[in-house]
Amino acid sequence: MARIIVVTSGKGGVGKTTTSAALAMGLAARGHRTVVIDFDVGLRNLDLVMGCERRVVFDLVNAIQGEASLRQALIKDKRNPNLFILAASQTRDKDALTLEGVGKVLEELAESFDYIVCDSPAGIEKGATLAMYYADDAIVVTNPEVSSVRDSDRMIGILSSKSRRAEQNLEPITERLLITRYSPQRVDKGEMLSLEDVQDILALDLIGVIPESESVLNSSNAGIPIILDEESNAGQAYHDMVDRYLGEELPHRFTKIEKRGLFGRLFGG
């Protein structure tokens, strides 16, 4: 039976798709059969970030409406045989998504995958609520700034009340917080909320802190999930996140300003 993970936020543009791609690729790289699904019908992005935009034939809506089998709709990732992508429809609208339809697709996928990553669209409307309804785990992506924090808080409330687990009185979704685009320099200057501030307001376990990094844009342009860029801080932080998801306890890196000692400053170390 697969574990269903939703990557959600409420606020748009905080890094859900980047995170979904990184998480899925990270799980696959560690040997788990993983599928990542784009729930943003009409505004699909996951296929771009994964680099498979030129191979999309059938999508999630086709699969739900029986116009294609899941086998036909799933796109195999060229870099890792464990990883598959299910793109969103670009030409339909989100009314084509139904609770039962999504449920059936996930049930079928659960038979042959270990992890199903659901990339949620922004907002709290149908696409977002369907992406999270069947989830077992949730990663709430938040930028360390006030609007994002408030929207995440709203989303956390919805996760604990409108999911299948909540409605059927099962063990609740395991919610974890991921802070993205973190800049210790700006926190130091008082321009940005610190991770302690965000945790204080949201009261959630922290699964990772991803530093602000230019390499994220480069990767996304190239269609390569950031986690494959082992040199970048963001890529490394995502590796830590995946390890923590799988149960390892690791300290949070890239959260403090790198202080250079006297020698470092004298000799440019």
Binding site: D153, R154, I158, S160, A203
Partner: peptide
């Protein structure tokens, strides 16, 4: 004893 979230 659970946090009351925004919108609740």
């Amino acid at each position: 004893d659970q946090p009351v979230r925004s919108g609740q």
